[in-house]
Design a protein around this nucleic acid. Structure first.
Length: 633
DNA sequence: GTAGGGTTAG
């Protein structure tokens, strides 16, 4: 039986007693049983019981419908829902406030906002209580119609219908954009004024609002002010940090909640695992996996996906694949996680293969998985295959490529040296090309040493992202390689004009009680000359042992180049001053990802001392050309 | 006896 054909046959005649609502008591204990099933979340059972009730000849009344409407909404069964509305009318319950509110809520669940509004509209002005406003407001907001929700809110305030915490809980989730932060904050003030801010759910809701608006400091401030935090409070803060890429804060908070004896749940672990993936903190991720197993919640598909993603992004493709293969049901996210991992770690062919398998398995791809597969093609040099996928997006899957896909394809063509095609593609884009698109072209110009096109791409990208320092550095490096000292100088002047010199892309070494700060391209250090000479020497050495790999990651350097260069300066300084006198060189707060890691590893082959570098998550011990890493958590 | 709400993966 199709889920839309749930038989809810009811005889039409004899039930049209519109003016005599709910006077007939239901026979037996139908309503009590329906209530219990609905409260226990056994919605399907509730609908079955309702059917039996009708068959037995009992008549539903105003106490029946709220339960049954809620069950239909919870099961997302719009057709029975609409039929139920007929039953309501036929039973003469349509002007019962509880039933009306349940109807509004149900229609909102099915996105049938017009129908929901019609029900609301039929309620006389004087009978419109807080609850029915609440139902409609939250419905509008959840379907991305915040403005309609606000109109209703101002209407209820104008008509002096009091609002409560549920009204606020309905409205606030609509403020999910930095542009709406001000609105959210004024709602927050209002809840203070009306004494609703102590309600924990309200506080949690505002916490999430601050997170979604990118105001993570305000979220933390509120978090600290909540006296009795629930698990949801902790989870909201952890997810907030996680979604804003603040992995270290996630792990700190996770540790804090554990030390306070708060038991994490699936939601917590999803946030923690995502941060482990970002930080490359595989050991902590593994501990989390063990904890998940101990708690017996490992079957949760969200957690399985998070584990696959964590291992895949940390480079442990074996483990990721094992979990993925063992998953009884793989969804789009599972496939994206595993193939994204292969693509990220240079196994483009495997990623492409997995994508094809996914399609064969009947999974409908979305835009996100296309970003992964296109990136994989780009990194593996599978230019034609990548182009084929790109064109199939629209033709086969009815997905309009976004600018993120265009930037992948520009990168794909660019790496293959097809710069004119890449440029033409940008010109033919149906939307305005954004920063990453021109940035991809700029990155390609770096690989293929095309100064003219680089200048064009740079002008465009700087217009769009004037504060993104990576692009200045990229062009500066292109000029450097082309021996264009004047160009390098020009870039430096532009950076200074923009006030970009205080970029966080700096590194430091503490030596003899003084902090030596290095920025990319910076020559202000008193030992600059020696440092650069040392650096040149080191880079020569590093190149010898295969550091060449870097160019494969041309595009990744757009964002990391500044930092990478400053790290190299810091390392050169450290070696110059400390290495001859020390056996173990400790460098703190150095971001040691990607090619910088490779660089230090190569360098350590040629110098006697060991390096211990501490970055955000772990210690890296370098000596004799090899490296071992330990998490320090 | 009944209605409205907060945190989740790629």
């Amino acid at each position: 039986m199709s889920r839309h054909n749930l038989p809810l046959c009811i005889k039409t005649t004899g039930l049209l007693q519109r003016n005599k609502p709910s006077a007939i008591p239901a026979g037996g204990k139908w309503n009590t049983q329906l209530r219990d099933l609905s409260k226990q979340g056994q919605y399907n059972q509730a609908l079955i019981l309702y059917r039996q009730m009708l068959r037995s000849g009992a008549t539903p009344n105003a106490f029946t419908f709220p339960f049954i409407l809620k069950s239909s909404a919870a099961l997302s069964l719009p057709l029975p829902g609409v039929q139920l509305h007929c039953h309501v009318i036929k039973s003469g319950c349509h002007s019962e406030p509880f039933v009306q509110t349940a109807l509004i809520s149900m229609y909102c669940r099915f996105s049938l906002l017009e129908k929901a509004y019609n029900v609301f509209d039929e309620i006389p002005d004087s009978a419109r209580r807080t609850v029915c406003y609440n139902a409609l407001i939250s419905g509008f907001v959840q379907k991305n119609r915040l403005s309609n929700g606000l109109v209703l809110f101002s209407e209820m305030r104008g008509k002096e219908v009091s609002f409560n915490e549920v009204t606020i809980l309905g409205l606030v989730p609509g403020c999910t954009d930095p542009m709406l932060l001000y609105l959210g904050m004024s709602l927050h003030c209002l809840t203070w004024k009306y004494g609703l801010s102590t309600v924990l759910a309200v506080a949690n809701c505002f916490l999430s609002m601050y997170v979604h608006c990118g105001s993570i400091e305000s979220a933390r401030k509120l978090f600290d002010e909540i006296p009795r935090k629930s698990l949801i409070t902790w989870n909201a803060m952890i997810s907030g940090y996680s979604q804003n890429g603040l992995g270290k804060d996630v792990l700190d908070l996770y540790q804090e909640m554990q030390s306070l004896g708060v038991c994490p749940d699936e939601v917590t672990f999803v946030g923690v695992l995502s941060s482990c993936a970002n930080l490359g903190a595989q050991r902590i991720g593994h501990e989390v996996e063990e904890k998940i197993d101990r708690l017996g919640i490992g079957f949760n598909p969200f957690l399985k996906n998070s584990l696959v993603s964590m291992y895949a992004r940390c480079g442990n493709l074996m483990r990721a694949r094992a979990i993925f293969d063992a998953m009884p049901e793989k969804n789009l996210v599972s496939w994206t996680a595993i193939l994204g991992g292969y693509g990220m770690h240079g196994h483009g062919e495997v990623a492409v293969d997995l994508f094809d398998q996914m399609i064969e398995a009947g999974i409908q791809p979305d835009k996100a998985v296309f970003v992964c597969v296109l990136t994989a093609c780009s990194h593996a040099g599978l230019t034609e295959k990548g182009l084929e996928y790109f064109h199939s997006m629209q033709r086969k899957y009815n997905l309009n490529p976004g600018s993120e896909h265009y930037s992948c394809v520009v990168d794909l063509l660019g790496r293959a040296g097809r710069l004119d095609e890449a440029h033409n593609l940008i010109e033919s884009m149906p939307m305005e090309p954004d920063g990453p698109v021109w940035g991809a072209l700029l990155g390609a110009c770096k690989i293929h040493k095309k100064v003219d096109l680089a200048e064009l791409a740079f002008d465009k990208v700087v217009e769009l992202e004037p504060a993104n320092i990576g692009y200045y550095v990229l062009l500066s490096n292109i000029y450097t390689e082309a021996g264009n000292a004047e160009g390098v100088l020009r870039i430096r002047v532009r950076m200074r004009e923009r006030g970009l010199k205080k970029d966080p892309g700096y590194s430091y070494v503490e030596w003899k009680g003084r902090t030596h700060l290095f920025m990319a391209g910076d020559r202000s250090h008193p030992q600059a000359k020696e440092i650069y000479a040392m650096l040149e020497n080191l880079e020569g050495l590093a190149k010898k042992c295969g550091e060449k790999e870097n160019d494969k990651q041309g595009r990744d350097q757009i964002t990391s180049n500044m930092a990478v260069h400053s790290e190299r300066l810091a390392i050169a300084f450290a070696l110059l001053n400390t290495a001859p006198k020390t056996e173990v060189l400790v460098i703190k707060n150095l971001r040691i990802c990607g090619d910088c890691h490779l660089f230090v590893k190569s360098v350590s082959k040629f110098v006697k001392c060991q390096f211990v570098v501490r970055d955000a998550t772990r210690f890296h011990h370098f000596s004799g050309g090899s490296c071992s890493c330990n998490d320090y958590w």
